[in-house]
Write a protein that binds this DNA or RNA. Structure first.
Lengths: 214, 214
DNA sequence: TGGCAAAACGAACGTTCGTGCTATATACTC
DNA sequence: GAGTATATAGCACGAACGTTCGTTTTGCCA
């Protein structure tokens, strides 16, 4: 293995650990010393990969985004465009939070709350990425409308806001109380809305009990 | 003024500042040195009022609770029990977040995200207080049902979860994007639900435009 | 095999953290 | 007015923080 590839490999290993620590303890709680300890390497050796703590934080955010895309966006996009994909986006998001992919629940919910009053490139990137997510939701709604599955009377931005809120709410309840019923509540609320706004072409959606993840 | 009363007064002043710092920078970011600087007093003099950082954090949480009760719970309880009080609870909560009573938006949303994976008395107290809030919402729903304003078919816990989620979602959007439209979206979603589940006795609720806070 | 980057290390920097200890200023009690 | 409790200040501590430095180890290539 080339020396260059080894560096890249180490960097990946660092970020993998960093993402998990940060989701639980935040991007400030993510300490270089702690990270080095957990990886059994020296602070300075680790530090050299990034050059500053802020760059480490940005890199960690980027790594979390890659995981999120792989775990949520990609699987949902395997579903056919329309009502089903919209539902999958929400359903898989909830499943991925519940599965404990990140120790601290949704990585972005955690770090958004941490950085929302802390200007700088880290905050900016977090905001961008969450906007991406919200846009994905919104786009899926519009597609469902264009496919004739969902009435055009509803405001896509409004519905995306509501779905996102319910998801964040479920994450909040799960993290703070370990209450897994929150996921079912979020699913129920989302499905209720989807079913209410669905046209005949959209067909009846599943009940929350029948979804794959419980 | 007695020496004892002076101590109490200082303590209050400290906590008032502490709450605002913590809502923006978190309870860990709330540093004793920083706090002392902002109040133009010595670290040790300030520290003597609490004995440990953890006690300072708990006291800060308690102070935030007092403000919250004064700003949200009490005003809402001036409304008559039933549908109106339920609506007021939500409406005033949103107004209080938007008003910037706390620099970092909802104090408890901020510190809950920060401490949800950090066991200890601070986390426990935060969880208790948010449960209090959720119970207040739930109780208001039940009262509205008992008053005949709201159909008994709905599950109060489910509705409370949804309202709380929408509120947290609005807080999130406002903090991260400064998007004040999120408050209107939350109000619209909440009112839509209230109106849908309201009985004839409940009467038609206000449209979001007519509420006092915008 | 010898040279050379890349990668990792160990030690130290200056700063800030929370937390003690000791002393002084202040107001109330007798 | 002396004595006492309370409130605040001053100073120092050990640990941890991010960061820099010079050095050593590592593996590829000529």
């Amino acid at each position: 293995m080339s020396r260059k590839a080894q560096g890249e490999r180490t960097r990946k290993a660092i970020l993998k650990t960093a993402v998990h620590i940060a989701s639980a303890e935040g991007l400030e709680g993510l300490t270089i010393g702690r990270l080095a300890l957990e990886l059994s390497m020296s602070k300075s050796g680790l530090f050299a990969h990034f050059g500053s703590k802020e760059e480490l934080q940005v890199a960690t955010v980027e790594a979390a985004r890659a995981i999120f895309i792989n775990e949520v966006i990609k699987p949902a996009f395997e579903a056919t465009q329309g009502l089903l994909r919209l539902w999958k986006l929400c359903d898989i998001w909830l499943a991925y939070v519940q599965s404990g992919v990140f120790r601290g629940g949704c990585f972005f919910a955690a770090v958004a709350a941490e950085f929302d009053s802390r200007p700088g490139p880290v905050r900016d990137r977090i905001a961008e990425i969450m906007k991406e997510w919200l846009s994905s939701l919104c786009d899926a709604i519009v597609e469902a409308q264009n496919a004739g599955h969902l009435t055009k009377e509803i405001d896509p931005t409004q519905l995306a806001f509501e779905f996102n809120s319910l998801e964040l709410g479920a994450n909040w309840a799960y993290q703070l109380y370990g209450d897994a019923r929150a996921f079912r509540r979020a699913r129920e609320a989302i499905l209720e809305r989807l079913n209410r706004y669905a046209t005949a072409a959209g067909g009846p959606l599943l009940a929350p009990e029948v979804t794959t993840h419980e």
